[in-house]
């Protein structure tokens, strides 16, 4: 009796969360898997089982391969640049002890704005004709790329906006990592007359690496889902910028093919989980090495 009351008591604490998780995470996930084996449409009467035809279609669709490559390139460039610039900015900010707080607050602003709003703002900033970027380049007699319309520049522009928006996040995590390094280690290195490069390579970088790894993991999984900036600047069907998420949107909501869209969603989910698992393992290795 005691045990059962304890069990009930414990369920009272975890139960509501469990119910919510089942209702909003597990059920939609399982339902999505079920739908992926049907010909369900957004509007219409009912659906029927079609076996693995949707998956066959996903893997033979040229758009899917192209979207995977494009998304991978986007993640690599955007997260790479954000890491490099964010960490460099965090290091540089260490020199500004008095105005650091003001600078950090100012630098964090892009991260706090909505990506959809950012996309619309950057549509104006990068407009080929009357955007401030090309007006400035024109005034300086420099070439004016068509940022949002030339297929060579479109994806670069989305990367640029993402970097502008999320570099402060990497900077913030880097600053937290830098602040956690004990001062005594730097003092000891100074006593040993270690060069600044040696201190950076042997002290700073290894100790801040777990923080950077975590930040990259978070950004990596987020960037894999890139949707809002592409939608706001190019729409879901542009061949130069279509990412996995916007392809999924195009298939499910524009074409109305819910069954096929669900198959895309399942494949993308497996892809993201696999990549995130590899990355997490790598992160754990770094942490063990640092410890």
């Amino acid at each position: 009796m005691e045990r059962s009351r304890g069990g009930l008591g414990r369920f009272a604490f975890v139960g509501p969360t469990l119910v919510l998780l089942i209702a909003f995470n597990l059920f939609p996930l399982l339902y999505n898997v079920v739908l992926s084996f049907t010909n369900a449409e957004l509007v219409g009467d009912g659906w029927k089982w079609i076996g693995g035809r949707n998956y066959e279609r996903v893997f033979t669709d040229a758009r899917f391969g192209a979207a995977v490559r494009r998304t991978a390139w986007f993640v690599f460039c955007a997260v790479g640049l954000e890491l490099g610039i964010g960490f460099a900015t965090a290091l540089a900010l260490q020199a500004f002890t008095r105005v650091r707080a003001v600078l950090v607050t100012a630098l964090l602003i892009p991260m706090m704005l909505s990506p959809a709003v950012m996309g619309l703002f950057w549509n104006l900033i990068l407009n080929g004709n009357h955007g401030i970027t090309n007006q400035t380049l024109d005034a300086l007699s420099l070439p004016q790329p068509q940022w949002l319309t030339d297929r060579e520049w479109k994806l670069f522009s989305v990367i640029l906006i993402d970097v502008w928006m999320w570099t402060p996040f990497l900077m913030l995590i880097s600053m937290a990592g830098l602040a956690a390094i004990p001062k005594t280690l730097y003092e000891a290195a100074e006593v040993d007359r270690a060069s600044r490069w040696t201190v950076f390579r042997r002290v700073t970088l290894p100790l801040v690496a777990p923080y950077l790894g975590l930040a990259v993991l978070l950004r990596f999984t987020d960037a894999l889902k890139q949707f809002d900036l592409v939608m706001a600047t190019q729409g879901p069907n542009d061949t130069s910028t279509q990412t996995l998420s916007t392809l999924l949107y195009q298939v499910t909501f524009r074409d109305g093919k819910v069954g096929l869209g669900s198959a895309y969603a399942c494949v993308i989910l497996v892809l993201v989980i696999a990549l995130a698992t590899v990355f997490t393992r790598y992160l754990e290795t770094i942490q063990r090495r640092t410890a």
Binding site: N127, G128, N129, H130, N134, Q144, Q146, L148, T149, D150
Partner: peptide
């Protein structure tokens, strides 16, 4: 005009209206 390979209806209108 510049970027004329990718103009939506509003941008076409803007190119003329300006």
């Amino acid at each position: 005009p510049k970027g004329s390979g990718n103009l939506d209806y509003g941008e076409v209108l803007e190119a003329f209206s300006n």
